[in-house]
Simulated scan of single mutants.
Amino acid sequence: MEIHPTAVVHDSAQLALGVKVGAFAHIGPEVSIGPGTRVDHHANIERLTTIGADCHIWPYASVGTDPQDLKFGDERTFLQIGDRVLIREFVTVNRGTGEGGGVTRLGDECLLMAYSHVAHDCQLGQRVIMANGATLGGHVHIEDYVGLGGMVAIHQFTRIGTRAYIGGMSGVAQDQPPYCLCEGNRCKPHGLNVIGLKRAGFSEETLEALKAAYRIIFRTHTPIQKAMEQVRAEVPGVPEVIHLLDFIASSERGVAR
């Protein structure tokens, strides 16, 4: 371990081998930091936060702070950060609330760019990228491999499906479907994330099936339930199409169309 003499580390914090803590950084009570993680100068890691291996917290980031929720009563709640997560300057991440499950989670290999914000009880999958100034309300669920453009604002309790990309400056008030390019205020899908899916190695069979499902669900005026029945009857049931249908069926806020 390398801990700068001006850093403040609480006696109950647990720092693994290879952790580096810079000047004037603050590590609060009951914090656990995994091996190889670096906490830069003036970064703030508040209480009841767990950080995995090989993460990097840049200067002036503040994670594990109390929820910005007037109902919060100082109950014991947590922040869990996975491995190889990158948190840039001035990012803020709040712990969970007792009413919301008690835990905010960031999956492995997420990148949170400068000034982005993750509110209480949010659940982020692996390799989520939040560009500068992107903001999540409380209880937002984001699946794996999602990209959020700069200054995106996502309403509380909203879900973003896997491998979706949300264009910059979008205002998101409803669930955004997986595999899609979405943008606007209010945000809605404008096509499949074809380039992203090809880069990820999706087969032509899968891409064609997703295109067919997308046309039926998002390019017709067919009521959503009938459109889903049509997809089940006409489109090959590859896992990605099944996931798309399951995502829509489980939506509580409604899926943007």
Rank of each mutant, 00 (worst) to 15 (best):
I3L: 00
I3S: 00
H4N: 03
T6M: 01
A7T: 00
S12D: 01
A13D: 02
A13L: 02
Q14Y: 05
Q14G: 04
A16S: 11
L17S: 15
L17A: 15
V19P: 03
V21F: 03
G22Q: 03
A23L: 04
I27T: 02
V31Q: 04
V31A: 04
I33A: 06
T37A: 10
R38G: 06
V39P: 04
H42C: 13
G52T: 13
G52L: 14
P59H: 12
P59S: 13
S62D: 08
D66F: 13
Q68V: 11
F72C: 09
D74V: 08
E75A: 13
R76G: 06
L79Y: 09
L79I: 14
I81F: 11
L86E: 14
L86T: 15
I87N: 05
I87V: 15
N94Y: 06
R95P: 05
G100H: 02
G101L: 03
G102C: 04
T104Q: 03
L106N: 00
L111D: 03
L111E: 04
L111P: 01
A114K: 04
V118E: 00
V118N: 01
V118K: 01
A119S: 09
G125I: 00
V128F: 00
G133F: 02
T135R: 10
T135P: 04
T135Q: 14
H139D: 02
H139P: 02
V140W: 02
D144W: 01
G147H: 09
L148E: 03
G149W: 05
A153T: 14
A153H: 07
H155P: 05
F157Q: 07
I160F: 05
G161H: 05
Y165G: 10
I166K: 07
I166Y: 06
M169K: 10
S170H: 13
G171K: 14
Q174F: 12
Q174C: 10
Q174W: 12
Y179A: 11
C182P: 07
R186W: 10
K188V: 15
P189V: 14
V194R: 13
L197I: 14
F202W: 13
E205H: 12
L207Y: 07
E208A: 15
E208W: 09
A212Y: 08
A212T: 15
A213V: 10
R215S: 08
R215G: 05
F218Q: 02
T222G: 04
T222H: 06
P223R: 08
P223C: 08
P223V: 10
Q225Y: 11
K226C: 05
A227N: 05
V231M: 05
R232G: 07
A233R: 13
G237I: 08
P239N: 08
E240H: 12
F247K: 10
A249C: 08
S251L: 12
G254F: 15
V255R: 08
A256I: 15
